[in-house]
Design a protein around this nucleic acid. Structure first.
Lengths: 240, 240
DNA sequence: TAAATAGTGTCTCTAAGACATTATGTG
DNA sequence: CACATAATGTCTTAGAGACACTATTTA
């Protein structure tokens, strides 16, 4: 319940500010990368931070995330999902700021991010070698996002959002391995993928030094987020 | 990134309000119940709603949830977990309100909720027979919470939070069945529970019309949230 | 001893994991 | 042919599910 009208007499100056922050993932040179922005202004001037910004008064949260992402980096049409809301009173030294964090997935082959006037630099960083510390509590948010991505990879088709339209099975396997940070058995992986009947052969082949790999694309009707493909047993998510 | 200082020139009156809403679950007469409050004031006067209220300026979100829950219903020391943040601009007719939703679990044998001056009535409703529609978008939030509870039940020990300290295997099984809304096989369920070594016998027995059931308690060191007990295969969560 | 509920045992089948084998390209 | 990488096949084993059987109480 929210709330008696008396609660609305709280002066607006007493209201916390609300932002969205977006953790954007992509694959680059077969490694998981995340997009960061170098802050041009204090606080945390010259520190790397997640793209994000203030939610407008009559704007849905996910729309705010998309808008901020496009304004600050030029990226658009990404896969977007709400992650968690961070609200420690001290997370922003200026005033109380509550941040609704999102994570996004993009195919790196498709778009190149650009800088804006709020950021002197925009760059993809390998998740394994992030500049640290980031501004605000963005280290924590990023860790949270990586955990979530890893976890959802095991029972959804999220990985598809990181690959180009057409790809090979070895590439798919490598995507999983990169994100999970562990080696997978080729035979078992292929078997599982084929049993799920997610793929459609694209009658072509791409060379790679040895025997060429067959090309596939994901079946259109299965690209939606609600289809669940459980690719293996283990499933442990650490919340918080 | 949040943000250039210019963003802080946004007048405070342009800031959305931030609330927390809490979906509280309990078991009563072996059925899953949720706690609702009858609103005393407009909007949605006389409608049932989730407990909740405004976040104070220097108060962590989960603390706000605990405070509001105690103020409005008297419940305290509950298991609490953040659920999702709802921010559709139209969800509150008065002004923009962004609500961070939580779900809470309580043992019904322990505490009885009471009314406050903001609510004319506080009541447990069986989740299967909720009064509808609820105030605001609380129907949606509640459905979301039920889905999440169901989903997490299958790979965590959340069910423990709903049971008294000491309980029987049939009671535990019934808890799972109630929440999942499906019948489970006794033999397989017991086997799985025992293999997980979560339980400690309490050398006693409780009659129930037939053969008495043995009493157990959960092992102390495993009550923390981070221990994962995967009690069965299926694991499908619909996000959103 | 019948009814009711609690608790254990067993069989089958699926699927995950480990690993061997075959296939198809290049120099 | 040697080498590299792609793709398939096979064996074992753990565990989920179905279901039968045994145990212990009350009426």
């Amino acid at each position: 319940m929210q709330n008696t009208d008396t609660a609305f007499e709280i002066p607006a100056s007493q209201r916390p500010a609300v932002t969205v922050d977006i953790v954007v993932f992509t694959l680059q040179e077969r490694e998981l990368h995340s997009l960061l922005i170098k802050r041009s202004y204090p606080p945390f001037q010259e520190r790397w931070a997640l793209p994000g910004g203030f939610v407008k008064l009559d704007e849905p949260l996910d729309q705010a995330a998309r808008r901020e992402l496009e304004e600050e980096t030029g990226l658009h049409d990404v896969y977007l999902e709400q992650l968690y809301t961070f609200g420690e009173p001290s997370r922003d030294p200026r005033t109380r700021v509550i941040s609704v964090a999102y994570f996004a997935l993009v195919r790196a082959d498709q778009q190149t991010p650009h800088t804006s006037n709020e950021s002197s630099e925009v760059r993809w960083f390998p998740v394994r070698e992030l500049p640290q510390p980031l501004a605000f509590d963005h280290d924590q948010i990023l860790r949270f996002a990586v955990d979530r991505l890893r976890s959802k990879l095991e029972y959804t088709t999220l990985a598809f959002q990181l690959l180009p339209q057409v790809f090979t099975l070895p590439e798919l396997k490598q995507t999983y391995e990169q994100i999970l940070g562990e080696q997978l058995d080729r035979g078992n992986f292929y078997r599982k993928i084929k049993e799920a009947a997610l793929l459609e052969p694209v009658g072509q082949v791409r060379e790679s030094g040895g025997r060429p790999a067959a090309l596939y694309r994901f079946r259109a009707e299965r690209r939606e987020g609600d289809f669940v493909f459980r690719w293996r047993e283990a499933r442990i998510e650490r919340d918080r």
